[in-house]
Nucleic acid binder design. Structure first.
Length: 740
RNA sequence: GGGCUGGUAGCUCAGCGCCAGAGCACACGCUUGAUAAGCGUGAGGUCGGACGGUUCAAAUCCUCCCCGGCCCA
């Protein structure tokens, strides 16, 4: 679309639609050569809302499937421009409306033809004899409709996209009837110098004089306007610069091969950009704007060919490097053409380059000039850039270097509201990032991203953010408990893996599984589900199981006990892994948790992900502990029933009779089952693998220190409220005691 | 209108031919030595719609429709 006011082409985004009143005309195109004899002496009737496009007419189009009526006019209303006795061709479905609009009082249909039967008919331009002598072929086109008009579309190849393509397909010329300012060019017969906005009257006058005008009216319809001047636009074909896709350079073919060689995250991107490249037309890289990067071409006036002279190019480059691209406008052409060429022989192109062309050139100066490897490892953007940056970068790199400028492309979706709808002020569903950061903190915002499937559209809103805040709390509390339980931990306390209890080795195994997931995500760029899994690990494996089980050892064992030291060694590994793994997302939280142990002079953001020893991995152990946790549920469920029956309260008040199938009997001993189930006693007995455990109140007294209910409590005389383990711990002198 | 793409519990997501899953939220209970915390148990879905097709078997494959998204027209 072209704005005669600003004298520039406009992009789709710069067009606004308003109601506009246009002059409509019905025009006769006399048949010169008929495809069927009955058409002799008849006229084809077209209807258009743009009378000013008549000088640019070069064809008339009909729909191949429609029925067209050859109408004999028998009588006309007063003032009608129709003539009694004339024969007109009009689409049958539209005939009643056309008859009414043109004031034909009575008529009869002599013949009905299929549109395809009309092909080959040659018409005369309505202004033949007045400078419009060319033939007007009647062509068939799928875009013709019978929604309005006459069923015949007047084709001006310079003033409509369908018109242009139909014209090209049929070898029609594309006359440039209208100039930049919206006036007819000097060569245009009858109308030279007239402005297209004021052309309706002269065009109608000329048509009337020629006897071609059948009727005239007005229509109010939605019409494109410039966003800046609010003035109506016109469709105008103008010469442009293109990069051809299928020339000897084989850009399309090479681009498709480059797409095959690229990694796409997600892989659907390959499909998307692939089908675009396969179907796209030649790339129009020129724009007519007052401001922008110039297309630095001189066209030789004599031949119409672009000048290809390395010396000229070198002068242009030298000028631009020191003065910038404005040198193109501020310097005389002779500066670039050099002493051997006459500036009068050349036309300097003043078009600017499409901004997408500029975006596509980034790889050329961002990578090599900074000593970075080419091609880039990754291009990352929203999915809209399949047609934007990815696309232009691909075509330019393929054109200049034969391959894509990237090894991989990662795309993410768009951020929607909680219903998956686009955010808009009018809907009031906008969530702004800075508001999230202010209310919840930037860590939450990042956590939300990592909890979402970024390959698709993301959703955000109050409820979703609230949930993220909950997830965050669990992560933060996990770190906080680790820090408290690791207080005073030193290297002397560390226990080698081989000496650790199975439970500790199981945790280390779990770390190797998570480590593998994270390293895989780093390699593949696919982080979907990684942080939810970390959260799951913290909530289910650590908080609800490992931490809960080991609180007894951490809080109550002698500090020099192997069990407690092993647990604290594992907590140390957990702290290092979790802080570094969380650091890219929970930047502030992870840094805080790191600094709490290693001082504020250090930073988790300077750490690498820990390298975990291969021998931590133990799949057999993992399987065994999966089984143990399943059996554990045979205890927790009946405990809940005992609670409901008021038999017990806390699980440590329970003594459990656990029925184990033969293959389950060797998994753990009685003390270990009690430890894992966090009860005071477990009595394993033979049974089936579906049998729930029996729950009874544990006999004995509650140890004041560890809360286990044991018969032995009170058996050490100096510690009447303690169990044996706690009495020993206190007597060891290694634990804190209240100051007397 | 076209290309690409999605629609599974309140929420975020897994499953992608063979008994509907996880975490969170929710309910109830326990705990009070992670406490603006912790533990346990439970309820919750006709997998967008089609008394549509293929199959011994479909959330999973095919067709049509509805709703949403990005890019074009």
């Amino acid at each position: 679309m072209w704005s005669p006011v600003e004298k520039t082409a406009l992009a789709e985004a710069e067009i606004e639609y308003y109601d506009h009143t246009s002059t409509t005309i019905w025009v006769r195109f006399p048949v010169v050569t008929a495809s069927v004899p009955a058409l002799r002496g008849a006229s084809v009737v077209i209807w258009t809302t743009t009378p000013w496009t008549m000088p640019g007419n070069r064809a008339v189009a009909a729909g191949p499937e429609f029925d067209y009526a050859l109408v004999h006019v028998d009588a006309v209303a007063e003032g009608s421009l129709a003539r009694v006795g004339e024969k007109l061709l009009i689409a049958l479905p539209l005939l009643p409306q056309v008859v009414q609009d043109t004031g034909i009082a009575t008529h009869h249909v002599e013949h009905v033809f299929k549109g395809e039967a009309l092909a080959g008919t040659i018409l005369a331009h309505p202004l033949r004899g007045r400078g419009y002598e060319q033939d007007t072929p009647l062509l068939l086109a799928d875009f013709v409709t019978t929604d309005a008009g006459t069923g015949f579309v007047h084709i001006a190849p310079g003033h409509g996209e369908d018109d242009f393509h139909l014209g090209r397909a049929n070898g029609l010329e594309v006359p440039e009837t209208v100039g930049d300012d919206g006036t007819f060019n000097a060569w245009v017969p009858l109308f030279a110098g007239a402005h297209v906005y004021k052309a309706a009257d002269p065009v109608c006058a000329a048509l009337t004089e020629a006897g071609a005008l059948l009727a005239r009216g007005t229509i109010r319809h939605s019409y494109p306007h410039s966003w800046r001047s609010k003035k109506p636009l016109i469709f105008r074909a103008t010469p442009q610069w293109f990069i051809r896709m299928d020339g000897p350079e084989h850009i399309r073919q090479k681009a498709l091969a480059a797409i095959d060689a690229t990694v796409f995250v997600p892989d659907q991107g390959r499909n998307r950009i692939g089908s675009m490249v396969a179907a796209r037309p030649d790339w129009c890289i020129s724009r007519q704007r007052a401001w922008g990067v110039p297309i630095t071409i001189f066209v030789e006036k004599r031949t119409g060919q672009p000048l290809r002279d390395p010396a000229v190019v070198a002068r242009i480059v030298a000028a631009f490097e020191t003065e910038g691209a404005d040198a193109w406008y501020s310097s005389p052409a002779s500066r670039f053409l050099g002493p051997d060429r006459n500036p009068d022989d050349y036309e300097q192109v003043m078009d600017i380059v499409d901004v997408w062309f500029e975006s596509g050139s980034t790889h050329a100066f961002v990578l090599e000039k900074r000593g970075l490897p080419w091609p880039a490892d990754l291009y990352l953007e929203g999915s809209d850039q399949h047609r934007g940056w990815f696309h232009s970068s691909l075509l330019e790199a393929v054109g200049t270097r034969g391959v894509a400028p990237f090894k991989a492309i990662l795309t993410h979706g768009f951020v929607m509201d909680e219903q998956g709808r686009k955010m808009s002020k009018s809907l009031g569903n906008v969530t702004a990032p800075d508001e999230v950061a202010n209310k919840y903190g930037a860590d939450i915002l990042r956590l939300w991203v990592m909890s979402s499937d970024t390959t698709e559209d993301l959703r955000i809103g109050p409820e979703i953010l609230k949930q993220q805040a909950e997830l965050y709390r669990r992560l933060r509390n996990t770190l906080r408990w680790l820090l408290g339980s690791l207080d005073g931990f030193t290297e002397d306390e560390r226990v080698p893996v081989a000496e650790m209890p199975e439970l500790e080795r199981w945790v280390l195994h779990r770390l190797t599984e998570l480590d593998a997931k994270i390293r895989s995500a780093v390699e593949s760029y696919d982080w979907t589900g990684v942080y939810p899994e970390l959260h799951n690990f913290c909530a289910v494996d650590l908080s609800a199981f490992y931490f809960d089980v080991r609180k007894d050892a951490i809080y109550c064992d002698r500090p020099d006990s192997l069990r407690r030291r092993a647990a604290r060694t594992v907590l140390d590994h957990l702290h290092r892994c979790l802080t570094t793994w969380l650091a890219p997302v929970l930047c502030f939280t992870a840094e805080e948790a790191w600094g709490a142990r290693f001082g504020d002079d250090s930073s988790v953001h300077l750490e690498l992900f820990p390298d975990l020893p291969h021998d931590w991995r133990d799949d057999a152990l993992a399987a065994k502990w999966e089984t143990i946790r399943a059996i554990r549920r045979r205890i927790t469920v009946p405990i809940e029933e005992a609670r409901a029956a008021k038999t017990i309260g806390a699980s440590l008040q329970a003594a459990v009779t656990l029925k184990l199938a033969p293959d389950e009997a060797e998994l753990l001993n009685a003390a270990e089952w009690a430890e894992v189930a966090i009860v005071s006693a477990v009595h394993p007995v033979a049974g089936g693998s579906d049998d729930p455990a029996a729950i009874a109140p544990a006999p004995g007294e509650k140890c004041a220190r560890c809360w286990r209910v044991l018969p032995e409590v009170g058996s050490v005389a100096v510690h009447p409220t303690l169990c044996l383990r706690c009495a020993d711990a206190v007597d060891s002198g290694l634990v804190c005691r209240a100051v007397a």
